[in-house]
Amino acid sequence: MKTTELFDMFLKQEDEPFSGWDFSFIGSTGRVQNSLLPWSYCSKVLPMMKSAETMLDMGTGGGELLSKLRPFPAKTYATEGYEPNIKIAQQTLEPLGVKVKSFKDDDSLPFSNHQFDLIINKHESYSEKEIFRILKSGGMFLTQQVGGFDCLEINEILQAPIQQEYLDWNLENAARKLKDNGFNILETDEAFPTQRFFDVGALIYYLKAIPWQIEDFSVSAYRDQLFQVHQMIEKNGFIDVKQHRFLLVATPQ
């Protein structure tokens, strides 16, 4: 297949549906691959769940990950703020006994003071004050976050604006904010694993799923730059970008 014909085929990935928080369309097929982190989020969550009676999963997406972490504590809740995901999460989690709550504002979660033994959070925003309010004394907050330097090479390659407001989101600043809001920090880690794209269609699908990376992204707006990426991949076999991840475990003082 000619370069331009293959490129036109990959451009159609813009129209592929994306639901919940499921990247298997490009991940399970090996079209995008990530290098390993020095920790496992789920391996840290599971022992904490064993000793918890009440748990909250923040930003559950479509419930894909939480549904695999059974057995749940006796009272388990999940939040989701993205409207299309709420029904998906309810359909996935509520038959398993998890109550799914929608919310609009990190500073106003629909829970009582000191309600949870354990709050887990993977790649979801949060308010330190609100976490402190709803977490029990002696409770645990575990979060894995996407740092502000995540995949900036994508923006550079496509000559797209970088979202400046996220650049200071890193382990040091996140830990400081938790300390300032009454937490003791129990564990930290930070890493910059590689994310590898093997075709430009996988990159297009990825960018449509995470619109905050390039806010004005569309195939029509970035067609020329995408063709350059396509040519780079045809020459080298892939393109690599650096992800940014950090882990925090904290408890109220």
Score class of each variant (00 low, 15 high):
50 K>G: 01
50 K>T: 15
55 M>F: 08
56 L>W: 04
56 L>K: 05
57 D>G: 04
58 M>E: 08
59 G>F: 03
64 E>T: 14
65 L>F: 03
66 L>C: 08
66 L>V: 09
67 S>H: 10
69 L>C: 07
71 P>R: 07
77 Y>K: 13
77 Y>A: 15
79 T>W: 01
79 T>C: 01
79 T>L: 06
80 E>Y: 00
80 E>K: 06
81 G>W: 00
82 Y>L: 03
83 E>Y: 04
84 P>W: 06
84 P>T: 06
85 N>S: 10
85 N>Q: 08
86 I>G: 03
87 K>H: 02
91 Q>F: 00
94 E>Q: 11
96 L>D: 05
97 G>A: 05
100 V>S: 01
101 K>P: 00
102 S>C: 05
105 D>M: 06
105 D>G: 08
106 D>T: 12
109 L>P: 03
109 L>N: 08
112 S>C: 02
113 N>V: 09
114 H>E: 15
116 F>I: 02
118 L>Y: 01
118 L>F: 07
119 I>Y: 01
123 H>N: 02
124 E>G: 01
127 S>A: 02
127 S>W: 00
128 E>G: 07
130 E>W: 00
131 I>T: 05
133 R>Q: 04
136 K>R: 06
138 G>T: 10
138 G>N: 08
138 G>D: 03
139 G>Q: 07
140 M>T: 11
141 F>E: 02
145 Q>V: 07
147 G>V: 03
148 G>S: 10
149 F>C: 14
150 D>I: 12
152 L>C: 09
153 E>C: 09
153 E>W: 11
158 L>H: 08
158 L>K: 12
159 Q>I: 14
159 Q>A: 15
161 P>S: 14
162 I>V: 15
163 Q>G: 11
164 Q>F: 12
164 Q>H: 13
165 E>M: 06
165 E>L: 04
165 E>G: 04
165 E>Q: 11
169 W>A: 09
169 W>D: 05
169 W>E: 13
170 N>D: 09
171 L>S: 10
173 N>G: 10
176 R>H: 12
176 R>V: 11
176 R>P: 01
176 R>A: 14
178 L>N: 07
178 L>G: 05
179 K>E: 15
180 D>E: 14
181 N>M: 07
181 N>A: 09
185 I>V: 14
187 E>A: 13
